[in-house]
Design a protein around this nucleic acid. Structure first.
Length: 394
DNA sequence: TCTAACCCTGCGCG
DNA sequence: ACGCGCAGGGTTA
C-alpha cells in the first residue's frame, strides 16, 4: 500500500502561551532546526516532528522512518503536550512573577510565550556539558554533529537528514573522545566520552531518569507528588543536583540546567555569567572587583530568585535570560528617554533598605555583525541608575 | 577559597 | 591586512 504523505494536525494555542520562535531559540535546547521559513523540525522519540505556528494554532506533523510503519495509535499529540509542557497557564505565571518583581514586569512583555520544554534528561545532560565556555550557535553545531555521527537516521526533510540523539551506549566506544576532538569539541570530548561510559555501564540510564521530578517525570511515566519547596529547593531537586555533580564535565551550573530542562525541577536556577550579570545589574548583587562567582554566591543567587519568584523560579529566570540574549536584542525596550521614579524595598545583609531610584534610559545604537543577513542597527538600552539609599533597622 | 588551564571561534581594536 | 586580546550559558586540578 502506498504510504500516505504525513498530515498536518493542529491544536489551539496563542503566542502568549507558546512562542515557538522564542522558545526554540533561547538556548534551552540545541537540536531544533528551521526546516522552512516558519517551520521547525527535530527528531523526538523515534520520529521527525515538525512544528509551525500562526496566531491561533500550533501545527504539527510527525514522520516516521521509512522502515517503520506509522503506528496505528499515534501518540504524537501526547508526546507534544508533554514535551512542550503545555499544561501550565503561562499568562498566569507571568502575572505572578511580575506581581512580585518589578524588573520582571518591565522586561517580560516583549518575551511572552517562553515555555520550559521537558527535554529528555540524557540529551539535556550532554547538551549542557557542551555548553561550558561556549556560545549557543557552536553548541548547536556540536550537538548536531553528535547526532549526525552517532545517532540513527530518522527521516529527511527535502535533502536534509535528521538523526536521533545518540544513546549513552553509542557514545561509549573507545575512539569517541579522539573522534570528538577531531570534530572540534575541544576539552569537552573527554567529558562526553567519560560521562557516556559512566551512564551506560556504571550507573545506567534509569539512574539518570529517576532523578526526575516525580510530578513531571520522563515521557510515559506516571506522576506523583514531590514535596514542599524549601529555600534551597525541594529535597528531590537537591538530591538530583548532588548526584549530577559526580559526572565529569558537570559543575553546579550544568547540573542546574539538567535539573531544570531535563528533569523537570522548575526551581533550579542555573547561574551562568549572564545571569550573574543580571543579578548584579538588576538585583543589586555586589559589583565590586572582588565579587566573583564563588560557590557561596552561586547558591545565594539561586536562593534569592527562588524566594522572589517561587516554585517556578527557573522558568522566570529563563524569561529574563532570554530577554538578555544578543539574538533577541532587537526586541529590547525602545524608549526615547524615560525617567522613572520608583521606590523599592528589599533586604540586604539582613537590613531593610529603602531606595529612591531614578532611572534614565539612554538609547544607544550599536552595530551587530552576528547576524549578517539582518545587518541593521540594533538598539541597546543602557540604564543609568542614581540611587539614594536609606537604611533602617529590620 | 582562589587560580590557571582547557578547545575553539568570532568580534573588536590597533 | 593581520595579529592580539577577550569572551562565549564553566569545569577541573
Amino acid at each position: 500500500m502506498a504510504l500516505r504523505a504525513a498530515e498536518w494536525h493542529r491544536l489551539p494555542t496563542s503566542l502568549t502561551e507558546l512562542c515557538l520562535d522564542t522558545t526554540l531559540r533561547c538556548g534551552q535546547s540545541f537540536r531544533w532546526r528551521r526546516s522552512a521559513d516558519d517551520e521547525w523540525s527535530c527528531t523526538l522519540h523515534g520520529r521527525l516532528l515538525s512544528l509551525k505556528q500562526d496566531a491561533h494554532h500550533l501545527h504539527y506533523r510527525a514522520i516516521y522512518p521509512s522502515h517503520a510503519a506509522t503506528p496505528h495509535h499515534d501518540d504524537t499529540l501526547a508526546l507534544l503536550t508533554h514535551y512542550l509542557n503545555l499544561a501550565p497557564n503561562l499568562a498566569r505565571l507571568y502575572e505572578q512573577w511580575g506581581a512580585s518583581d518589578a524588573n520582571f514586569q518591565k522586561r517580560a512583555p516583549r518575551f511572552a510565550g517562553v515555555r520550559i520544554l521537558r527535554q529528555d534528561a540524557w540529551e539535556a545532560l550532554i547538551g549542557f556539558i557542551c555548553s561550558s565556555n561556549n556560545n549557543i550557535s557552536r553548541i548547536s553545531a556540536m550537538v548536531h554533529n553528535l547526532c549526525l555521527h552517532y545517532g540513527a537516521l530518522i527521516a529527511h526533510v527535502g535533502d536534509t537528514p535528521y538523526h536521533d540523539f545518540p544513546s549513552p551506549d553509542s557514545l561509549s566506544g573507545p575512539s569517541v573522545e579522539a573522534h570528538l576532538r577531531e570534530l572540534g569539541f575541544g576539552y569537552r570530548a573527554k567529558y562526553i566520552a567519560k560521562t557516556a561510559q559512566v551512564v551506560a555501564r556504571e550507573k545506567g540510564l534509569k539512574w539518570l531518569q529517576d532523578l526526575s521530578n516525580p510530578e513531571c517525570p520522563q515521557f510515559g511515566t506516571p506522576a506523583s507528588p514531590a514535596g514542599p519547596l524549601l529555600p534551597g529547593g525541594r529535597e528531590g531537586y537537591r538530591a538530583a543536583h548532588e548526584q549530577l555533580l559526580q559526572l565529569s564535565g558537570v559543575g553546579p551550573k550544568v547540573a542546574d540546567c539538567v535539573c531544570l530542562f531535563g528533569l523537570g525541577w522548575s526551581e533550579a536556577v542555573p547561574v551562568d555569567t549572564h545571569v550573574w550579570q543580571i543579578a548584579q545589574r538588576d538585583y543589586k548583587f555586589g559589583k565590586g572587583r572582588n565579587s566573583s562567582m564563588t560557590a557561596g554566591i552561586y547558591v545565594a543567587v539561586g536562593d534569592y530568585f527562588r524566594k522572589l519568584w517561587g516554585k517556578e523560579a527557573g522558568w522566570a529566570h529563563s524569561v529574563l535570560f532570554t530577554a538578555d540574549l544578543r539574538a533577541f536584542s532587537e526586541r529590547l525596550v525602545k524608549k526615547e528617554e524615560v525617567k522613572e521614579q520608583e521606590t523599592q524595598v528589599k533586604l540586604e545583609h539582613g537590613e531593610e533598605v529603602v531606595e529612591q531610584v531614578e532611572k534614565k534610559e539612554v538609547v544607544k545604537s550599536k552595530r551587530v555583525k552576528n547576524e549578517p543577513e539582518e545587518e541593521k542597527m540594533l538598539v541597546e538600552v543602557q540604564t543609568e541608575v542614581v540611587r539614594r539609599s536609606k537604611r533602617r533597622k529590620a
